[in-house]
Design a protein around this nucleic acid. Structure first.
Lengths: 130, 130
DNA sequence: ATCGTTGCAAACTCTTTGCAGGATT
DNA sequence: AATCCTGCAAAGAGTTTGCAACGAT
């Protein structure tokens, strides 16, 4: 994939950036599509993927890999933090800070590279509905 | 998906169970296929998926969702533990125990359901090779 | 002999890519 | 005007399913 970062401003691209900026949580491509389509109609999913790729390249976005769900993306530059996933609606939310202080013990010969931590449960709006 | 758990013994099924039992780590469907094919040739990937589904249903296997990688499966019944993923070869390994003692602070109204913890790095055999 | 299980191929879902027309600089 | 960007549709990768033949009971 030798795509160069896009540089022209289009209404699609602005809608996509706005979607990520206004959502206060990581978005899947599908979620970004729905939000962007509220501002510009006819946005295609291909454009979402292409712009996400471009925004990753310029490090405006970062990928958030979720176990058992498609990759989410969030605006880059935040402090080290982890994520919460609602088991009811599937939305991903940010958690503040990181409570993992010590490096876990690894088997002999393994080298530590980093960690990820996820919390599952029910988000406030889903908890309210039942 | 209304598949009922399979009950007949076939050489394919035995090879698949043996693959999971002998591997000392969670396997992806592709890894299970390669291991099963060493015992029975011509095993198809569809059979792997169908047997994994059946073994999940009978709770002989459990799914291990990995961020950014396809789902792995491991023999069920182990104590609560977490996983390590090698950034070089992609293999998943088990870690012993769980060092997360306290529940993380969640936003107002959120309900805690559980957690997952992953460590990334280089496994012993990949570390040795360089 | 019955009917569960398999391999093959087609179907599906999610993501990526080629292309021609449209938009931005 | 040049060429970047978009939408559409086709192409890929991973997973699931229909079907006829095979094989376990």
């Amino acid at each position: 994939m030798a795509m160069t970062a896009q540089r022209r401003n289009t209404k699609q691209k602005e809608a996509i950036r706005a979607a990520f900026q206004e959502a206060d949580r990581p978005l899947s491509p599908e979620e970004a599509l729905l939000l962007a389509q509220k501002q510009v109609d006819g946005v295609s999913i291909a454009t979402i993927y292409r712009n996400i790729a471009a925004l990753l390249e310029t490090k405006w976005l970062t990928a958030v890999q979720i176990p058992g769900a498609s990759t989410r993306y969030e605006v880059a530059g935040k402090a080290h933090h982890h994520h919460f996933q609602c088991v009811t609606c599937g939305a991903t939310h940010e958690l503040e800070g990181c409570e993992i202080k010590e490096r876990p013990k690894l088997p002999r010969g393994f080298k530590y590279g980093g960690h990820e931590f996820f919390v599952y449960g029910t988000c406030a709006s889903c908890a309210k509905k039942r």
